[in-house]
Design a protein around this nucleic acid. Structure first.
Lengths: 209, 209
DNA sequence: GGAAAATTCTATAGTTCTATAGGTGAAATC
DNA sequence: GATTTCACCTATAGAACTATAGAATTTTCC
């Protein structure tokens, strides 16, 4: 008399679906706002059945957050290490930072908004990752200042934080904004960040009213 | 055998202190992560005593969020309506947006991060406010494009969202970053947003007065 | 000093939520 | 075709949390 339909398939597939559901629910309602019941509802299984896949809600958060950050630092390191102008590197860093939003937005959002609720240990570990990432951006900016590409009086720390604010905010609205592909955002933001909103290479002073 | 010290003073004072505590706790642990017990602990009173000041935790969130947004739209409207270049308006909008972080950061943070948990009605109301605010920024950008101050191919919608991302992120780290005053952030971000990180000199953001 | 108002207390009902224990049927393996 | 493993199930213990009721204490005001 069971009316549920079993999902057959490889175990990998199923745990992935479980984690997807958790990410979805954590992203939209927040870790504490989401109950394990909510996650189970998405999957069409019973609340207690989730505990076959993870030992606690907190561990589920850890796994989601982990998938939310994975790759970020590595990719950024390889971009920074490659040859090229600071200009190009910043543009590539922006594109690489936004790319994961295409196929794992709920994971990224959960990482960004809910990592503060991780247990102390993993929160610290992830905090170190974040700081390394920030420093890496800051270093690229500094190298751009040294090479003369960027303003000599640029506050690289503030500029790095600004860049992160700019790109991280995308996770919050992308998907709701119509007709805005990740590619488009990346190229527009790169332009914005590198050259500002103004007319970058105009010769004369703008007219003022 | 009561060891607590009563805070005497005007009723206004006391309710303000209660709301401060709620804002503090909501900002640092999130609405659902914060218990009424946590708020009471900050104040040194019993959990149930809070219900003398508000009828439910949700209403407390409403009041905190309301104080978190109040003034934003009004200030922005008057900046947009005033005379001056689009350049100046953007700079002033940035400064005005950051100003409340000086004296009500927990309120602003709670608004930014927890408004999604407001009951439907007030969430909608506040949603409308936010959208009006976004549109206003977008309009200033558009006027800058028309006047020739900004790039003719600027995507004003994206640029407006970018500006908001930039400034809203400050709420998350200001206070932890050492030696970074709101004034300094405002002027550096205005420069960044208007002229980018590169050595653009075209548009007259020079200080004159 | 005494009445009224304001503020906090104790005690607890009632709900919601996480997590555990043990069972069941289907699928995979031998 | 018997056995083991997998992926769920039911039932519930136990903790945490919101909110109410009514008493007690402190402060304000005359």
């Amino acid at each position: 008399m069971r009316k549920q339909q079993r999902k057959t398939g490889h175990p990998r597939r199923r745990s992935a679906a479980i984690l997807d559901a958790a990410a979805e629910v954590f992203a939209s309602r927040g870790f504490h706002g989401a109950s394990t019941q909510d996650i189970a509802d998405v999957l069409g299984i019973r609340q207690a059945s989730l505990y076959y896949y993870f030992p606690s809600k907190e561990v589920a958060l850890e796994e989601v957050c982990l998938r939310g950050v994975e790759g970020f630092l590595e990719t950024a390191i390889s971009i920074a290490a490659a040859a090229g102008s600071a200009h190009d590197k910043i543009a590539r860093l922006i594109a690489a930072h936004l790319a994961p939003l295409r196929d794992r937005r709920p994971y990224v959002r959960t990482f960004l908004n809910e990592r503060q609720h991780l247990p102390t240990e993993s929160r610290r570990r992830i905090g170190r990752l974040s700081r390394a990432y920030e420093r890496l951006i800051e270093d690229v900016l500094k190298s751009g200042v040294r090479s003369g590409e960027f303003r000599h009086d640029l506050d690289c720390r503030l500029a790095a934080l600004g860049l992160l604010g700019l790109v991280n905010a995308v996770a919050a609205w992308h998907g709701k904004e119509p007709k805005t592909t990740i590619d488009r955002i990346a190229s527009e933001y790169a332009r914005l960040y590198l050259g500002g909103v103004g007319i970058a290479r105009a010769t004369g002073q703008r007219k003022r009213r």
